[in-house]
């Protein structure tokens, strides 16, 4: 069978690419021209975001926490927020612009996204309250947890350990039950009314 050169599809027009190509990278590639300050961001955040995320990013109910959690990542209950966990500011801009507010995605202007991003930096104590974020100073913001990520190392760390011939007989003297799910009792009962419609 033939390979390539099918001549299928058509050339994408610049306007079409501009409409859909909205992604932003850590090096700032993809960022549109624009700006927004903390105070503008606060007003927008209270209007569009706080119903789920709280006035200061502390979250309402089960919705995601956006601020705080510093110093918790190596503890028993890590609180992974934009400030404590996210490696790049570009991800905040890109994600808010692409998918938020939840239920009204891509309804914010570029300047509004800059302002909300500035406010999210402020509630994470990463900028002062007079800070204005723009495409020009964007790359100056370094997130505190940027260096804490490393490439998947399972091939080096785990595969050799887990590629040994396993024990088949008399592998344990005694086997004790150490934890039981029934004690927790958090499983949905499997009655008809719980079925996903």
């Amino acid at each position: 069978s033939r390979e390539g050169g099918y001549g299928l599809g058509r050339t994408a027009l610049p306007e079409e690419i501009a409409a859909w190509d909205i992604d932003v990278r850590p090096d700032g590639v993809g960022l549109p021209v624009g700006s927004g300050d903390v105070w503008t961001g606060e007003e927008l955040f209270v209007d569009y975001c706080s119903v789920c995320h709280g006035d200061f990013g502390e979250a309402v109910g089960r919705w995601p926490v956006l601020a705080g959690g510093f110093g918790t990542l190596d503890g028993e209950d890590p609180v992974k927020t934009i400030g404590s966990y996210w490696p790049y500011l570009s991800t905040v801009w890109d994600y808010v612009h692409r998918a938020m507010p939840y239920g009204a995605a891509q309804s914010l202007t570029d300047d509004e996204v800059y302002a909300i991003t500035a406010y999210l930096l402020y509630v994470n104590n990463l900028v002062e309250d007079d800070f204005e974020l723009s495409n020009e100073n964007f790359s100056e913001v370094v997130m505190p947890n940027e260096q804490a990520f490393f490439m998947d190392d399972r091939d080096a760390v785990e595969l050799p350990l887990f590629s040994q011939d396993p024990c088949m007989t008399d592998c344990a003297e005694t086997v004790e039950i150490t934890m039981r799910a029934a004690v927790l009792d958090v499983t949905p009962d499997t009655e008809e009314d719980n079925a996903v419609e």
Binding site: L73, D74, A148, F149, F150, M151, D152, D153, R154, F162
Partner: peptide, 12 residues
């Protein structure tokens, strides 16, 4: 230790 693996694509 508080650091994180990224790009853990394969399912073991």
């Amino acid at each position: 230790h508080g650091e994180a693996r990224r790009f853990t694509w394969v399912m073991d």
